[in-house]
Simulated assay, not measured.
Amino acid sequence: MATATLSDLNPAASGTGSLSLGDADFQFLRDFVYQHCGISLGEQKRQLVQGRLLRRLRALGLKDFSGYCELLRRDPDGELGELASVISTNVTSFFREMHHYDLLVEELLPRWLEAKKQSGRLRIWSAGCSTGEEPYALAMVLAEALERTGSKVDARILATDLSPQALETARAGTYAMERMGGVSDARRNRWFLRGEGAYEGLAQVHPRLRELVTIQPLNLLHDWPMRGPFDAIFCRNVVIYFDKPTKQRLFERYAGLLEQGGYLFLGHSESMYGLSDSFELVGRTVYRKRMS
């Protein structure tokens, strides 16, 4: 999946210009980002934030960082998504951490489709979907399972992210061919439309996949409009920079939206150890909601 992580870019390469991010403004930004995004900005990130935000200041026509902080005070919700895009780096790819997809294909999807038969509903949530590679990869294996079984189950994938820029790419569903290294040739031929002429080197996801995926903006730390229940939630490489209390709250909220025995998939460097009693580890970064 999708990773929204703070970058370790070389500050010297960030183009800091002549403006400097002062102590008071940086402290405000640290507090704001933690409150609204759950990410702790250490002092070592000051130059990165300064360099990244200079581009945003120019786009908004602001003269200094104090003006930007004032904008956040006046309209925190209106600028939050752009700020998240500025301070985060979306790192993702198709079929990243392939063992998760293998579990879906070989065990979970056949079991769910059989249990739900003709009248059930199946829901998967890609929480932190970034530019869309994860939900579309999920859509491929789901569509294939539906075709293979002839199932009439009402199956959908919800894909959410905070970044407007990432969501714009996800909604377009168009990717450079070099970004599709994780997709087999068979799946490229089946699930992508190749561009020609001015669109040479690009591929767009098949309309069938787009039918399965609903893409919406969502801040994981704010209210959630959906009620569930979900059969599986993918939240991979998203919570790694959250502090312990934020992770604990998030995992309990996930448990509340999952079916009994539903699955939560985390990233390769993430763990739920000591953070929740609602789940049991059943595979490599795969957790199942305990039966109540």
Score class of each variant (00 low, 15 high):
residue 213 V to F: 06
residue 291 M to T: 03
residue 202 L to V: 03
residue 265 F to K: 00
residue 161 D to T: 07
residue 21 L to G: 07
residue 11 P to Y: 12
residue 269 S to D: 09
residue 32 F to N: 07
residue 118 Q to E: 10
residue 268 H to R: 12
residue 219 N to Q: 13
residue 11 P to K: 15
residue 8 D to Y: 12
residue 209 L to D: 10
residue 14 S to N: 13
residue 90 N to K: 05
residue 149 T to H: 11
residue 203 A to L: 01
residue 157 I to T: 01
residue 151 S to R: 03
residue 286 V to C: 06
residue 231 D to L: 08
residue 168 E to F: 03
residue 190 R to Q: 10
residue 77 D to Q: 15
residue 230 F to A: 05
residue 31 D to A: 14
residue 102 D to Y: 08
residue 150 G to T: 10
residue 290 R to Y: 01
residue 230 F to G: 05
residue 154 D to L: 02
residue 79 E to G: 04
residue 77 D to H: 10
residue 232 A to V: 11
residue 47 Q to L: 14
residue 181 G to N: 12
residue 13 A to K: 12
residue 126 S to D: 02
residue 121 R to W: 05
residue 11 P to E: 11
residue 79 E to T: 00
residue 183 V to L: 11
residue 273 Y to C: 08
residue 137 A to G: 06
residue 164 P to Q: 05
residue 64 D to N: 15
residue 6 L to M: 14
residue 83 L to I: 14
residue 190 R to W: 02
residue 284 R to D: 10
residue 90 N to F: 07
residue 57 L to E: 00
residue 205 V to P: 00
residue 187 R to A: 05
residue 32 F to A: 09
residue 17 G to Q: 12
residue 43 E to D: 10
residue 26 F to H: 12
residue 170 A to L: 09
residue 40 S to Y: 06
residue 224 W to M: 06
residue 97 E to D: 15
residue 112 W to D: 08
residue 109 L to E: 07
residue 164 P to K: 02
residue 277 D to G: 01
residue 158 L to Y: 03
residue 37 C to M: 15
residue 187 R to W: 08
residue 36 H to G: 07
residue 61 G to P: 04
residue 102 D to T: 12
residue 210 R to Q: 15
residue 195 G to C: 03
residue 67 G to L: 00
residue 53 L to N: 09
residue 114 E to H: 14
residue 234 F to M: 08
residue 262 G to A: 00
residue 222 H to I: 07
residue 28 F to W: 09
residue 16 T to I: 14
residue 249 R to I: 03
residue 248 Q to V: 07
residue 72 L to V: 00
residue 119 S to R: 05
residue 263 Y to P: 00
residue 95 F to S: 10
residue 213 V to Y: 04
residue 161 D to S: 06
residue 278 S to T: 08
residue 185 D to M: 08
residue 53 L to F: 11
residue 28 F to C: 11
residue 145 A to S: 12
residue 284 R to M: 08
residue 229 P to D: 02
residue 81 G to R: 07
residue 32 F to P: 00
residue 213 V to P: 06
residue 237 N to F: 13
residue 145 A to T: 06
residue 159 A to Q: 10
residue 203 A to E: 05
residue 63 K to D: 13
residue 246 T to W: 08
residue 114 E to P: 00
residue 234 F to A: 03
residue 156 R to E: 05
residue 53 L to C: 06
residue 263 Y to F: 04
residue 17 G to I: 13
residue 264 L to A: 01
residue 166 A to T: 11
residue 23 D to L: 12
residue 77 D to P: 04
residue 139 A to H: 04
residue 223 D to W: 13
residue 22 G to E: 12
residue 9 L to C: 02
residue 16 T to P: 11
residue 136 Y to P: 00
residue 82 E to R: 11
residue 286 V to A: 04
residue 146 L to T: 01
residue 241 Y to A: 09
residue 140 M to Y: 04
residue 292 S to G: 06
residue 187 R to T: 00
residue 280 E to N: 01
residue 54 L to W: 01
residue 38 G to E: 09
residue 212 L to A: 05
residue 30 R to M: 11
residue 71 L to A: 12
residue 103 L to W: 15
residue 153 V to N: 02
residue 258 L to G: 08
residue 6 L to G: 13
residue 183 V to Y: 07
residue 54 L to M: 10
residue 166 A to L: 10
residue 256 G to C: 08
residue 129 C to P: 02
residue 213 V to I: 09
residue 148 R to E: 06
residue 47 Q to I: 08
residue 121 R to E: 11
residue 169 T to C: 05
residue 39 I to Q: 13
residue 180 M to S: 03
